[in-house]
């Protein structure tokens, strides 16, 4: 696929383990401060907690596990991004931990490059593309894919 085939989209940018990630803003429900979390014994570390989002029990996922980043304790900047994704064709609400949330911004299609096959420490199928803004690279994760191969 040529690089300029990628459509532009509104994205929420956030920080995970020092990298900037962009998530499609259309699937974001809300952004929460840290709230009480419940451990689920025996669950995969990627989704080993549950939170209460407006009366709904929602799994809390830590994308850092999937990107083999260190699990640092929450800071004053840590947020929970509540998103809705399609899991087996069923809309599912999940919370994503973010070390810091920046802003909603437009990522131009032309600036998105396909995932390079080499030079990546992450599973290539978890990444949709790499966007560029100024001098910074923005990772566009394939959220649905990440949850599907769970």
């Amino acid at each position: 696929m040529a690089a300029n085939d990628n459509p532009s989209f509104e994205a929420l940018t956030l920080n995970l383990g020092g990298e900037v990630f962009a998530i499609d803003a259309n699937c974001v429900h809300e952004i929460l401060d840290m709230i009480p979390q419940t451990d689920v014994p025996g669950a995969h570390p990627f989704v080993d907690r549950l939170i209460n989002v407006r009366g709904k029990v929602v799994p809390l996922a830590d994308l850092r596990i999937k990107f083999e980043m260190e699990r640092t304790p929450p800071t004053i900047d840590t947020r929970i991004v509540v998103v809705e994704i399609l899991l087996d064709d069923e809309p599912t609400v999940v919370g994503l931990l973010a070390d810091k949330v920046y802003e909603v911004t437009t990522i131009g299609g032309a600036s998105i490059e396909d995932t390079p096959d080499i030079g990546m420490r992450w599973r290539p199928d978890f990444i949709k593309g790499i966007g560029k803004r100024g001098q910074d690279f923005i990772v566009i994760p394939d959220i649905v894919r990440i949850f599907s191969v769970h």
């Binding site: 009480p36 689920v40 989704v47 209460n52 029990v57 899991l87 087996d88 599912t92 999940v94 769970h150």
Partner: peptide
């Protein structure tokens, strides 16, 4: 959710008086 379908020992969840799960 389906993400926890593989977790044995639990049949569901509930929300307690203090809002935690």
């Amino acid at each position: 959710s389906k993400l926890h379908a593989d977790v044995a020992n639990f049949s569901g969840a509930t929300i307690l008086g203090d809002g935690s799960v």
